[in-house]
Simulated scan of single mutants.
Amino acid sequence: MDSPYRRELEVALRVVEQAARLSQAVLPDTDKGAIEKDDNLGPVTIGDFAIQALLTTSLHAAFPEDVFVGEEDASALRADAVLCDRVWTTLCRTVDTSSSPDCILPASPAEMCEAIDRCKNAPGPGRVWVFDPIDGTKTFLRREMYAINVALLVDGQQTVSVVACPLLCPDEGGNDKTFLTNDSLDPTGRGSLLFAVKGHGAYVRPLFEGKGLGIATDAAPRRLLPAVASQLLRPVTCFHLQESALDDVHRSIAQRLNIAFPGNDLLGWVPRWALLATGHANMTVWVYRRRDRHAKIWDHAGAMLLFAETGGVVTDVDGRPIDLLAGRSLTRNFGFVAAPTAESHALVLQAVREVLRAQDRLDLLGAN
């Protein structure tokens, strides 16, 4: 892909390939070193820590003036020497720097922790890399669908996106299920590497040569086609996540639009954006239970660009564009509405707001 961000894309691709290789090495382990985070945001594993350290160290070496934002911090590693050693050993054992010179490892466990903590920033103007080392950690623990998300923001605009979905088939129609779920795993073992640069389209290619084989470095990418027209809406959501969103609202919206529910049903947001980009799905709605619930930037930045580069339209429930300068939490937006075209987006957004009024949830409607 010829763009002003060719170097950034090339480096990110090489590093994410190795991050995916690392995740696949950890995936079969029964004990992934999982601990619960203090902020009630779910578990974190040795894979999350190791991948964030790899991403930060490598991209900082290539672009030392850039800012980094990531989900994890190293406080648990500093407090637990055994866990820290497991993360360090995983990094050293699984990352092949000889075949990928853009991949740089920390020089010591202490530097590894420093690299992880380099991501405590909030996004702001200028060049900012955003990482979700493993999106869908709960499903990763079950050896089910997960993703690795890397985004470059420039002045708050999604500019480069690289997403690895190691368990998602890269082929068109490559899964025999009508709708994909967390346990819909690529039978070929190749996985998907998706990438986009703003204004230059979105692409997918295999991650690996096959089950148990190496990285598919020579695989030709396939450009992702524009999303399907509005009369063929195919949803992706996450059903039965009651602590976060409103299943009854989502079901009623689907009924009003006369579409399947839940349809594609995945826990991680990054895999959901990947399904939207690849055409397995082409619309999603997410209404939180309260107006003070907000998304995290690493679950969406970059991954949304994949869908946008196929022509998809993304706003919040109020119809506002997603503001990626709001902070680590997207506090200027409430929920998500995504659809393949401006026309279909307007229909879906109207259905969302009609259902909220019908269910007397005016507390969830903004001023628009």
Rank of each mutant, 00 (worst) to 15 (best):
M1P: 12
P4V: 05
Y5G: 00
R6G: 10
L9Y: 07
A12H: 02
Q18R: 14
Q18L: 11
A19I: 02
A20P: 08
S23G: 14
L27P: 01
D31T: 13
I35V: 12
E36N: 07
G42I: 03
P43I: 12
V44E: 07
G47L: 03
I51H: 05
Q52L: 02
A53I: 00
A53T: 00
L54P: 03
A61H: 11
A62C: 07
A62R: 01
V67A: 06
V69S: 07
D73L: 11
A74F: 05
A81M: 08
C92D: 09
R93A: 14
S99M: 09
P101M: 04
I104V: 15
A107M: 08
P109T: 09
C119Q: 04
K120F: 05
N121K: 06
P123A: 04
R127Y: 07
W129P: 02
V130R: 06
I134E: 03
G136K: 07
T139S: 07
F140I: 07
E144V: 02
Y146D: 05
Y146K: 01
Y146I: 00
A147V: 10
L153N: 00
D155R: 07
V162W: 03
A164I: 11
L167S: 02
P170E: 10
P170F: 07
E172F: 11
E172A: 14
G173Q: 04
K177V: 09
L180I: 04
T181N: 05
N182V: 03
S184P: 10
L193A: 02
L194K: 13
G201A: 15
P206H: 09
G210D: 14
K211H: 14
D218G: 05
D218P: 00
A219T: 13
A220P: 03
P221D: 04
R222P: 03
R223V: 10
R223P: 11
P226A: 09
A227G: 15
A229T: 14
L232S: 06
L232A: 08
R234N: 08
V236G: 02
V236Q: 02
A245T: 08
D247S: 08
S252A: 15
I253D: 00
N258T: 09
F261S: 08
F261N: 05
F261H: 12
D265V: 04
D265W: 01
L267Q: 15
W269I: 11
W273I: 01
L275Y: 00
L276T: 09
A277R: 01
H280E: 10
V285M: 11
R289C: 06
R290T: 12
R290P: 10
R290V: 07
R291P: 15
R291H: 14
R293M: 14
A295E: 09
K296T: 15
H300C: 13
A303M: 02
M304H: 08
F307V: 09
E309R: 03
T310W: 01
T310F: 01
G312C: 07
V314T: 04
D316G: 09
D316V: 06
D318Q: 05
R320M: 06
I322C: 06
I322H: 00
I322P: 00
D323N: 11
L325F: 10
R328V: 01
F336L: 14
A339H: 04
T341M: 12
L349P: 00
V352T: 12
R353Y: 02
V355K: 04
L365N: 13
L365S: 15
A367L: 14
A367K: 15
